[in-house]
Amino acid sequence: MVTNGTRAQQSRKMRFTGLDNLVDGIVISESAGAKKPEPEIFRQALEYRADNSTVWMVGANADADIRGAQKLGLSTGWVSHEKSWEGTDSPTIIQPTTVRVLEEIHLGR
Rank of each mutant, 00 (worst) to 15 (best):
Q10T: 05
Q10H: 03
Q10P: 12
S11V: 10
R12M: 12
F16A: 14
F16S: 12
F16G: 09
F16Y: 11
T17R: 11
T17H: 10
L19K: 04
L19S: 11
N21F: 09
N21D: 14
L22S: 07
V23S: 02
I26L: 13
I28Q: 08
S29F: 03
E30H: 02
S31L: 11
S31A: 14
A32N: 11
A32F: 10
A32R: 09
G33H: 05
K35V: 13
K36S: 13
K36E: 15
P37Q: 06
P37W: 04
E38A: 11
I41Q: 06
F42I: 02
F42C: 00
R43G: 02
Q44S: 03
Q44L: 04
Q44W: 01
A45Y: 05
L46S: 05
L46F: 00
L46R: 00
E47T: 14
E47R: 14
E47V: 08
Y48D: 03
R49I: 04
R49E: 12
A50E: 15
D51C: 12
D51S: 02
D51I: 05
S53G: 05
S53D: 10
T54R: 15
V55M: 04
V55D: 03
V55C: 15
W56E: 01
W56L: 02
M57T: 01
M57H: 06
N61A: 10
N61R: 09
N61F: 06
D63R: 08
D65P: 05
I66Y: 01
I66F: 06
I66G: 03
R67I: 08
Q70Y: 10
Q70H: 14
K71L: 11
G73W: 05
G73Y: 10
G73C: 00
W78D: 00
H81N: 12
E82K: 10
S84H: 10
W85G: 01
W85M: 03
G87D: 06
D89K: 09
S90L: 11
S90G: 11
S90A: 13
T92E: 00
Q95H: 06
Q95G: 09
V99P: 06
R100G: 15
R100T: 13
R100K: 15
V101P: 00
E103C: 01
E103G: 00
E104N: 09
H106D: 12
